[in-house]
Design a binder for these strands. Structure first.
Length: 444
RNA sequence: GGAGGCGUGGUGUAGCUGGCCUAACACACAUGCCUGUCACGCAUGAGAUCGCGGGUUCGAAUCCCGUCGCCUCCGCCA
């Protein structure tokens, strides 16, 4: 096959460039000076001999005023084309933000070849979620979606910095494993060279083993769930903020640490994205034993006395409203879940047979954290595995950690996307995820 | 896995008790006019055989069956 001339379509950089790039957010400090901006063609308003070009870079929007001659390089250019513009930063009360670029010279760095599939310059993205996700490369450029991505970054950073300050070490565990951690829950199988393997649904077993090494560990990473649920709060891949700590006295130590982590996340989010409703977060977080939560729900008629003891989404929503109204809190800790409902490594509550030292934390009526104290003696593991009919042999490397001494410990996992969803108050978790994975979506 | 709902220009919707549909509206797009726009405005224009297949009927976007795709809720979970 004949290869056409591969001569690069370079020639794009106007030479020589002696002027450094100015970010739009820095324009106010450059008033009266010649500046060079680079960004995307956000919007054009042509009034005739007076025209306004709005340029967007990662720091904001800038208005450029141009006459008909100056507009010539933009003729026929679709929105989102990549531009460079030099001109004078000028104070102008009639301009948005009181500043605009005048006497501009435009240079096209990359011309868009088609108009964007959605209008990015409107306040609201007016398209269905599946369409936006199909066109993520473009729709993510909208202010709302960029803000959601920034929020995710801020939340993750708030988690990391808080735990680092508390003496935790960040760890990196494998996402491909031979055994399934929780047993039962559905996993994605894959071929690992010539043996079967799975994408991990949790770093649980690894972070416990690492408690025996570093005492306090945390991890920010993806987990995979092959459960076929198709709801506004589930993803097949999501980011789990995991923490595990040794030498705890009681499960209250874990809840206090989880609160610290969440408080750090809320503060980071508020600093990055101002103007949102303040989060109600008492110290300590209000908590409710599981059976009392059931009583609250029965009193409200959300749940029937004969129902199997569990917390349904409707029950969670009601508890969220209840906690806000009665306890002035956006968070509610539910403690002492039935042992049967929790994984094998969960520590039972010796004072309440049948109940565990596992807990969940609800944020505005949605479960965002699961945690608990774990067993820490090898004999206890062998006993519960036998009771549950589990073969201990795949867990040999895990059990070795306990054979050689493991402190009383526990931990928790926070669903990052869920926190972001609740924080922004959006209807669907897919709105805060750049490229969500769920049943029915594998691309982009 | 279970229940319900929706598929109409590029996008979002109206029409959907059959004929007035030669399919409407808003946004986007194209052309023209406009010296302070900031959801710019005004005018003109292009763009859809109404998801796909079959059926009923003189006549189907509209009713029926099938099929595909999507959405919501539930079970389970973070």
């Amino acid at each position: 096959m004949e290869v056409p001339s591969m001569k690069p379509s370079d020639s794009t950089i106007p030479a020589p460039n002696t002027l450094p790039r100015t970010l739009i957010a820095d324009l106010p400090s450059r008033i009266g000076h010649e500046v060079r901006l680079q960004g995307f063609l956000h919007n054009v308003r042509r009034l005739g001999t007076l025209n306004f070009v709005v340029l967007r870079d990662r720091t904001g929007l800038a208005q450029v005023r141009a006459d008909a001659d100056e507009m010539a390089p933009l003729t026929g250019l679709p929105d989102e084309s990549v531009l460079e513009v030099t001109g004078t930063a000028s104070a102008e009360p009639r301009a948005p933000g009181g500043i605009e670029l005048v006497t501009p010279r435009f240079f096209v760095l990359a011309a868009a070849t088609a108009p964007p599939p959605v209008v990015l310059s409107r306040r609201e993205l007016k398209a269905s979620l599946p369409f936006l996700l199909d066109h993520a490369a473009v729709s993510l450029r909208h202010e709302d979606r960029r803000q959601a991505l920034a929020l995710m970054a801020a939340l993750a950073e708030g988690f990391r910095s808080t735990l680092r300050e508390l003496g935790f070490t960040e760890v990196f565990t494998p996402k491909i494993a031979a055994a399934t951690a929780e047993g039962g829950a559905e996993v994605f199988p894959l071929e690992y060279f010539d043996v079967p393997a799975y994408l991990t649904q949790s770093p649980q077993l690894y972070k416990q083993m690492l408690v025996g090494v570093l005492e306090r560990v945390f991890e920010v990473g993806p987990v995979f769930r092959a459960e076929p649920h198709d709801t506004g709060r589930h993803l097949a891949q999501y980011c789990s903020l995991d923490a595990e700590m040794g030498f705890i006295d009681t499960v209250a130590d874990l809840i206090a640490t989880a609160r610290e982590a969440l408080a750090g996340m809320m503060a980071a989010a508020a600093a990055r994205i101002p103007g949102q409703e303040a989060v109600l977060m008492p110290d300590p977080l209000p908590s409710l034993p599981f059976w009392e939560a059931m009583t609250v729900l029965e009193a409200a008629g959300v749940r029937q006395p004969g129902d199997r003891p569990d917390l349904t989404p409707a029950g969670e929503r009601h508890l969220g409203e209840w906690a806000r109204a009665e306890l002035a809190s956006d968070f509610l800790v539910v403690t002492g879940y039935p042992q049967d409902e929790r994984p094998f490594y969960t520590h039972p509550d010796p004072h309440h047979p049948g109940y565990s030292r596992g807990f969940d934390i609800l944020f505005r009526g949605l479960e965002i954290v699961t945690g608990g104290q774990r067993l820490h003696r090898e004999a206890d593991y062998l006993r519960v595995m036998a009771e549950r009919g589990m073969d201990p042999s795949p867990f040999e490397a895990y059990l070795e950690a306990f054979r050689h001494g493991m402190p009383p410990h526990g931990g928790f996992a926070i669903g990052l996307e869920r926190v972001a969803k609740q924080w922004l108050g959006v209807a669907n978790i897919r709105e805060v995820t750049a490229f969500p994975r769920y049943r029915g979506r594998l691309a982009p």
